[in-house]
Design a protein around this nucleic acid. Structure first.
Lengths: 312, 312
DNA sequence: GTGAAAGCGCTAACAT
DNA sequence: ATGTTAGCGCTTTCAC
């Protein structure tokens, strides 16, 4: 392995002059620069990136914690983050978490160890207070309403749109609405927003059996739909956490020869568009880009991006 | 910032003993270990990851070069890569390229600078020979048939399946088939495989106007379909590089009140399943996982994963 | 078991 | 304009 010292020795100049050449700095005579660059080319030398990072103290890396990548929430968010990171000359490191506390802690430790300049949690299993405890160690951005937590956050403002979606269903005469969501009420702000909106619109609590959680893929949607069909009080409409999932649910009803409930999807996916489903677009790309912006800024700021109900 | 030396000083032991404690090594008296760990906790000390990397020489990072992320080829490949990387305790760094030579070179330089242990090109604009020139500097894996290039490669073996798909169309009586693809014939091995399969099945070259390139999104598919409709010899079937794209094309025909050509999609997407479209599944997740395996192994090996024609 | 010291390869302050 | 040198924070021989 050839180092900066080799270049110095062979060119007859000092390491600092070589370093200046490497970093395009001034105060190097053109002839010197040329001579050094010749040696660099001769030895096929490349400065070690890790050593540079150690000396300079900045990694230009931002870690993005992702529970999984099977949902447009995460993929769109990630795209937004990557786009913004690219523009700012940062690199994105993917950190799969499956919502496991142990993994999340591992990533937080890595932040403490300066493996990343910042961490973005697209979602998290640990309570916000646990995350916030690591905030002094490095910048941590979350992608949901931070509530009273001091963490910087960029997130979709969903409640108003959920209310609008459910009001639409109510206006169409529906009284028994099912809700499909990916994570349990207790841990998910999104689920809480949906259920909260339900209560706001229908003035009663959502019966627990009409909330189907753990629904992530279209196949999950089918299964959830079968569970809803099997109930004594079948639903006449479904608010689903994804167009793909709504399409899965639809398939289950069709397969069972049952009338398909009125569906409202989310994420503005092609599958829903094909069927003319109303959907909710949360503009996650924008949310991601803003989250990245927060990750490399200093101000403890919050950014809420309003969601949008799209009716074909 | 507290360093290993602080811990050494405050605990009364040397840095090397502290280092041994940090790295869970033997030959440390239990009492010593306990004492040191107490100080570590007291000072809230976290060893610097970059310094460790510099000392040890391995980054545990693998860079993944992605032209964009709007196509299932890339997202599925990436998922497979991430899954395998996670299992092997590596991290994935996202490197957006847009097929730009300058960016690709920048990433290759970063490899030379030991910013990554290896680089995976999910696709590339530079000629393979340019990539191969960097191979001595670090492991480079490509995701297409390497031909005579010495680079390790994991890729989908597509030709046989394209032949099968086109034979199906031919058997259905189609003689004028359009092909939608994302990149020009000259630069894309995939496009070449599709066109080559066409020649193999129809025993004539594909008329250039029936090859529509630059088609990436469903909207592109619509536009390409309109171009095909406008031609003197309209096509009666389309082989599309994606179910979503096929769906876009279908929409254009419907909007124009034209009969929809027989469609074959790719990527096994939900949008196609909804419409009962035949599709080609290239098993890109598997390809990605295998590509990662090659990235951290030593043997210069090639892995071809056969594609699969799926008819509902 | 523990410690001293020499790296790892670079940057940057300071000197000339 | 160029050189000397002290870090950056850790790991890893090699002594003892």
């Amino acid at each position: 392995m050839t180092t900066i010292r080799d270049i110095a020795r062979l060119s007859g100049y000092s390491v600092s002059t070589v370093s200046r050449v490497l970093n395009q700095q001034n105060y190097v005579a053109p002839a010197t620069r040329a001579a050094i660059q010749r040696v660099i080319r001769q030895l096929d030398y490349a400065p070690n990136a890790v050593a540079r990072t150690l000396s300079s103290g900045r990694t230009w890396n931002v870690g993005v914690v992702l529970p999984h990548a099977d949902h447009p929430y995460f993929t769109q968010l990630l795209h937004g983050i990557v786009r913004a990171a690219f523009a700012a000359n940062y690199h994105i490191v993917l950190l799969p978490s499956k919502w496991e506390a142990e993994l999340e802690l591992q990533y937080l430790e890595a932040l403490r160890q300066h493996a990343y300049d910042a961490l973005i949690f697209t979602s998290h299993g640990l309570p916000l207070s646990r995350l916030a405890a690591y905030h002094p160690a490095g910048r941590i951005v979350i992608c949901q309403n931070p509530g009273t937590s001091p963490l910087p956050a960029a997130y979709a403002e969903r409640t108003a749109t959920y209310v609008a979606a459910l009001q639409r269903l109510r206006a169409h005469g529906h009284r028994r609405v099912g809700i499909l969501t990916s994570r349990p009420l207790a841990v998910s702000a999104t689920t809480q927003a949906m259920v909260g909106a339900y209560e706001q619109v229908f003035h009663v609590g959502l019966p627990p059996e009409r909330l189907r959680t753990g629904v992530i893929t279209a196949a999950d949607g089918e299964q959830a739909a079968r569970a809803l069909m099997a109930q004594a009080q079948p639903v006449s409409a479904i608010l689903s956490n994804g167009d793909d999932i709504a399409v899965g649910a639809r398939r289950a009803y069709l397969a069972a020869g049952q009338p398909v409930p009125e569906l409202i999807g989310q994420e503005h996916q092609l599958s829903g568009e094909v069927l003319g489903l109303p959907t909710i677009d949360h503009h996650f790309e924008t949310v991601g880009a803003r989250a990245f912006g927060l990750a490399i800024s200093r101000a403890p700021q919050n950014v809420a991006i309003p969601s949008e109900l799209i009716v074909p």
